[in-house]
């Protein structure tokens, strides 16, 4: 139960920050900008060692938001460099996130094939 509350708080807070970025900044920030920003931001925080503690405390609250995707990319690259050297830097990020990306492509394609937009 405690895990659930922590996940709620961390996940909610991450989304809250995104909402405030969209509402309170003078720039026209679209969802596309938010998603790109969260992935790259998450990766950078992760590389600096700041995201792992958030994952340990908040669990899915930190991995489900897209910054968690960035975290996986960064950790994948680092792990892969450890085991494979320089070449690992190129493939590591995508290897670590390949299941998620493949799932998104496949499910996306299937849904787009079988459903029609409602308008």
């Amino acid at each position: 139960m405690e895990d659930l509350i922590k996940a709620f708080l961390v996940g909610g807070a991450l989304c809250l920050i995104g909402q405030l970025l969209m509402d309170l900044t003078p720039f026209n920030i679209t969802p596309g900008h938010i998603l790109v920003g969260y992935v790259t931001g998450g990766a950078i925080l992760s590389a600096l060692g700041l995201y792992q503690p958030l994952v340990e405390w908040g669990g899915a609250g930190a991995t489900v938001p897209l910054s968690g995707f960035g975290h996986s990319l960064a950790q994948g690259a680092i792990e892969s460099v450890k085991s494979k050297g320089l070449l690992g830097a190129l493939g590591g990020g995508l290897e670590a996130t390949s299941v998620g990306i493949a799932a998104a492509v496949v499910f996306g394609l299937v849904v787009a094939t079988f459903f029609n937009p409602k308008g």
């Binding site: 679209t30 969802p31 409602k118």
Partner: peptide, 9 residues
């Protein structure tokens, strides 16, 4: 603007 099924405000 955006596709109609896109979850934007």
């Amino acid at each position: 603007r955006f596709p109609t099924e896109f979850g934007v405000q």
